[in-house]
Write a protein that binds this DNA or RNA. Structure first.
Lengths: 136, 136
DNA sequence: CTAAACCCTGTAGTCGACTACAGAGTCAAG
DNA sequence: CTTGACTCTGTAGTCGACTACAGGGTTTAG
């Protein structure tokens, strides 16, 4: 298991070659070295880094935020407080988005309940009525 | 209050002129006619249509979906069932997004709780630990 | 009558996370 | 030794909802 070419890494990590080059442009990963012909050669443990990225994405972090997390992760002298702060900011962000969606869902629920569906034409549709500002 | 030029309409509706032209490209609005010089002239009641669009956006509908809603709204023979179906699909969509976000929030919450923050370095940070796949 | 303020079309840029080439060079199997 | 699979760089396209020009023509206030 020596240096991986980008195609092998892509297969191992289940990502496309283009995505890997894209991550490199963003500074998320880098090949350990280049071959004489300029081919990227990766150490196998970059796969761990890619898994880090995927897990962080699943938690809602953007690639830019993940770059910060990776930088902190690579600096043993850095404080866990910074990671915690990023995490709490993300929690706040997610909570705000949830609240927005909850508000929409409630409004839509109320309207859908009132709507008689196929027993009426659009003229009597309370959903369209609300969108047309018939109440308030 | 006769035909509005696009600038006046933009002011009245609190939208930019560019946005109005963009909505026209998408088929959401159309000027009643054009002046001799080719200027768009709108009937004042297009403002109601723009409010419809804004309300629907606030409920989470995309402009493409709003075009459908407007088409149904303009067809008195159409069934309210179609509007209800669109609404219920949107509710389902929003609920799925809420569930995804809830899952993220829960995971982040758990991690943030365990993290000692500034009392530790990143080496002992459980958040980074989790991202590195230390558990499971 | 002139200058500011308006309007037109058409094109391109923004954000984020990719995806898809084109055109060229390189490597590995048979 | 050839052919196919791989890799390189660089550029452009995708989605959605705008936003921002450039380079013209038109209208209106003073």
């Amino acid at each position: 298991m020596n240096p991986l070419t980008i195609g092998k890494l892509a297969k191992q990590a289940d990502l496309s070659v283009e995505t890997l080059r894209y991550y490199e442009r963003l500074g998320l990963i880098a090949p350990q070295q280049r071959s004489e012909a300029g081919y990227r050669l990766y150490r196998p443990d970059v796969i761990r880094r890619l898994r880090f990225i995927r897990r962080a994405q699943a938690l809602g972090f953007s690639l830019e935020e993940i770059a910060e997390l990776l930088a902190l992760s690579g600096n043993p002298a850095a404080s866990a407080g910074e990671v915690k702060a990023l995490t709490q900011a993300k929690i706040a962000d997610i909570e705000r988005r949830i609240r927005d969606l909850e508000r929409m869902r409630q409004a839509l629920d109320g309207l859908a309940e009132q709507c008689p569906g196929h027993r009426a034409t659009t003229v009597d549709c309370p959903i369209l009525g609300a969108l047309n500002g018939e109440d308030q």
